[in-house]
C-alpha cells in the first residue's frame, strides 16, 4: 500500500484541497500546516492551470489569482520540499494534463518523488488516456488517482480494478463548487467500487457543511472539500489559515 493509505487509518479521512499560490505561496504553506495540524488526513495541492475545465467559479478564480501572482510548477515543487520538513500526511497534486505533459511527465514524476508527493489527480485524464501518465508516475513511486462519476455506470468496475492510492468519487454532475444538495445514489457506486477494489474511496465535489461531509464519509471512506476551503482563502487572504484550522476541526469532528 502506498503512503496515501495512511490517510485512511485515522477513521474516516478528511481530504482538503488548496490551490497553490492563492493568494501567495507563504499563505498556502501556512494553510496546509493549519489543515494538517487540525485533522486533515490528506492534502490535495492544486497546481494552477490557465483553463481549468473541471472547476467551478470559485476554484477558477483561485487559479487566476495564483497565476497572476507568478506561481509556476517549479515554485510549487519548492513549496512541497519546504512543507515536507514537518508535514507528514500524504500530499497529492491535483492539476491538469498539460501542466504535467509540458513539464515532461518523467521530469515531473521524478520531482514528485524527490520533494515528497505521493499521488497525482488529473481530472482531464480518464481511464482510456492514463497510459500517458500512470506507468511513468508509478516508476517513481507516485500513484495516479482515478475518478468515478455519477455517469460512470458500466465503467466503475474497470476503473476501480486499476485504481491506485484512493478512488475519487465525484458526487454529482457538473464542475467543482458548493451545492445545497447531492442527489446521486452514491451508495450504489460505492458498492460496485468495494466489489472491485480494496483501496479506499472518498467523495468530493459540492461538499461544504459538516452535515454533508458526515453523510458522504458515512457511505464511503472519506470526504473531500475544495471550493469551501478556497472560499475561505478568497475571503480572508493571509488571515485564512486560522479560519481554515477552525473549519477543518469542525469537519473532522463531524465525520470521525
Amino acid at each position: 500500500m502506498s503512503r496515501i493509505g495512511k490517510a485512511f487509518e485515522n477513521g474516516k479521512a478528511f481530504i482538503v484541497f488548496i490551490t497553490c499560490g492563492d493568494p501567495d505561496l507563504e499563505t498556502t504553506a501556512a494553510a496546509v500546516r493549519a489543515a494538517a495540524a487540525n485533522g486533515a488526513d490528506l492534502i490535495e495541492l492544486g497546481i494552477p492551470f490557465s483553463d481549468p475545465t473541471a472547476e467551478g467559479p470559485v476554484i477558477q478564480s483561485a487559479n487566476v489569482r495564483a497565476l497572476k501572482g507568478g506561481v509556476t510548477t517549479d515554485k510549487v515543487f519548492e513549496l512541497v520540499r519546504e512543507l515536507r520538513r514537518d508535514v507528514e500526511i500524504p500530499l497529492v497534486f491535483m492539476t491538469y494534463a498539460n501542466v504535467v505533459f509540458s513539464y515532461g511527465t518523467e521530469r515531473f514524476a521524478a520531482r514528485c518523488r524527490e520533494t515528497g508527493i505521493d499521488g497525482v489527480i488529473l481530472p482531464d485524464v480518464p481511464f482510456e488516456e492514463k497510459e500517458d501518465f500512470q506507468p511513468v508516475l508509478n516508476r517513481y513511486g507516485v500513484d495516479l488517482v482515478s475518478l468515478v462519476a455519477p455517469t460512470s455506470e458500466n465503467r466503475i468496475a474497470m476503473i476501480a480494478q486499476q485504481a491506485q492510492g484512493f478512488l475519487y468519487i465525484v458526487s454529482s454532475l457538473g464542475v467543482t463548487g458548493v451545492r445545497t444538495e447531492i442527489r446521486t445514489d452514491l451508495g450504489a457506486i460505492v458498492e460496485v467500487v468495494r466489489q472491485n477494489t480494496g483501496i479506499p474511496c472518498a467523495v468530493g465535489f459540492g461538499i461544504s457543511t459538516p452535515g454533508q461531509a458526515a453523510k458522504m464519509a458515512a457511505i464511503s471512506d472519506g470526504a473531500i472539500i475544495g471550493s469551501a476551503v478556497v472560499k475561505i482563502l478568497e475571503q480572508y487572504g493571509k488571515e485564512a489559515p486560522e479560519r481554515i484550522a477552525e473549519y477543518v476541526r469542525q469537519i473532522k469532528a463531524a465525520i470521525r
Binding site: F127, E128, S146, V148, A149, T151, V170
Partner: peptide
C-alpha cells in the same frame, strides 16, 4: 482527455 463524467 476529458473528465470521467463525460466519457459515457
Amino acid at each position: 482527455y476529458i473528465p470521467e463524467t463525460l466519457m459515457n
